[in-house]
Design a protein around this nucleic acid. Structure first.
Lengths: 249, 249
DNA sequence: GCCGTTAGTTGAACGCGTTCAAAAACGCGA
DNA sequence: TCGCGTTTTTGAACGCGTTCAACTAACGGC
């Protein structure tokens, strides 16, 4: 795998244009009417091409979501980076990142619901732990690395190494809550962020106490194991018969 | 809501039979071929009735899953209760419950994946936090209450009150991991259970330390808030237009 | 300029979940 | 026994995601 880079698909001169057009149209309609209400036929029609053509560029409707992932992440980044300049404490930095995340996602509350629904499906390529979403995930974790690195907090090395990943998982949890949060203006979610960030800050201090070393070590070993498991594509059972065979792309 | 109990539907003399038949057939086929592969048409055919008839009893294919929920929970209970007799320590009791849970779910690994996929959808009635799954959830939490109550562990009152709920959430997390776990015989999941239970046991001890009172209080306030949010059906935005209108049953 | 190969595009079809109007079966008081 | 309301059952239809064989356009070598 990954040995022969294939000669074809040199540049995709015109295809790129069409693909971009489909994507634009789709995301636009998703935001307007939501995911379920937007049919592939409608997307094709609005983009002035045939249904089958849309499927030539996006293997399934779900794949359009991945683009959404990527886009909002970049919007978030654009909003977050300048705001982080002023903040030095870990707590303030984390707070900024989390609040802006929700702000960024705000226009897509309903859509995001679907996103997580499909994302939770182990078979789906949208699963944030799955191989295909590697780049987005890694970029996202990187952001939390910056949150940690840029702060003045004194954190033991072993914890520091895993902290970014842990914060990324935490941020998934907050998004999950937000999706289920029907309160006006997402008040509850913002309150939750305030409280959890505060708590996290205290926990990190506590865990950094030398007194806590043994427990911390054990917990970190656990985290490591979880990460392994999430990445490991080996050890696969003989289950996904037809599913996995579609590697052509 | 819940004021007029409606006179009709006194006993549903024959309907019950049909409904049960559909359910049996469906679950059987789910186990054999998985959820997606089992079509409503196939279920109807195997049960010797028309497609529309199946929909008369189950508003959608998803509703069949709820029955699955309930059934496996009861199987789990049946396996767990005797086994708990012998165990007195919190750690051992929790370990027993968790291991048997996975054992119970084993035959449905693929199916369970779909379950969680739809369960993660906020709009779905299968969402474990949603109103419609109240009874199952409450029974399930009750089990963890027994786990705590039956143990000799000394736990502060405030923590004890929330512990069952926390353990229930923890158990959801383990199931989520298990669904994604491709390792043979679910080795990884069992290892994870061992480690996390050990860790949890230590954490509970730690949290029970008087020294930890302030932090514990703060954390528990947070948990309480989360539970509220999950239950609160008020404060709803003006979103779900058509969805919510189907109250007829 | 012709031809073969690849990229891009089309429209019709399939299978599935779901809906619905209408028929059938049932229960029960007159 | 008949009529009438309710429950149960039916079969056909709709809309959607997805697939596929066939067509056209673009490009490069001869």
């Amino acid at each position: 795998m990954g040995a022969t880079p294939k000669k074809r698909k040199i540049k995709t001169p015109k295809g790129d244009q069409t693909k971009a057009l489909i994507l634009e149209t789709a995301l636009e309609m998703f935001q307007e009417r939501g995911y379920e209400q937007t049919t592939m036929r409608a997307i094709a029609e609005k983009a002035n091409l045939s249904l089958g053509n849309a499927y030539y560029y996006f293997h399934s409707k779900e794949y359009l979501i991945q683009a959404f992932y990527h886009r909002t992440h970049e919007q978030h980044l654009a909003a977050v980076l300048p705001a982080l300049q002023d903040e030095t404490s870990l707590k303030a930095r984390l707070l900024t990142v989390m609040r802006l995340k929700i702000e960024t996602l705000k226009p897509y509350h309903e859509f995001a619901g679907v996103l997580f629904k499909t994302a939770a499906n182990p078979g789906s390529p949208l699963n944030p732990f799955a191989e295909e979403s590697d780049p987005v995930r890694m970029e996202s974790i990187e952001l939390f690395e910056q949150v940690v690195e840029g702060s003045k907090a004194r954190i033991p090395k072993d914890l520091r190494a895993e902290l970014a990943y842990l914060l990324w998982v935490y941020h998934l949890g907050i998004i999950l809550f937000w999706i289920h949060d029907p309160s006006p203006k997402h008040r509850r979610t913002f309150r939750l962020i305030d409280h959890t960030v505060d708590l996290l800050d205290k926990l990190i201090s506590l865990a950094s106490n030398p007194f806590m070393m043994p427990l911390r070590k054990q917990a970190l070993r656990l985290v490591e194991e979880l990460r392994e498991a999430a990445t490991a594509e080996d050890e696969i059972q003989g289950k996904d018969d037809e599913e996995r065979r579609k590697q052509s792309d």
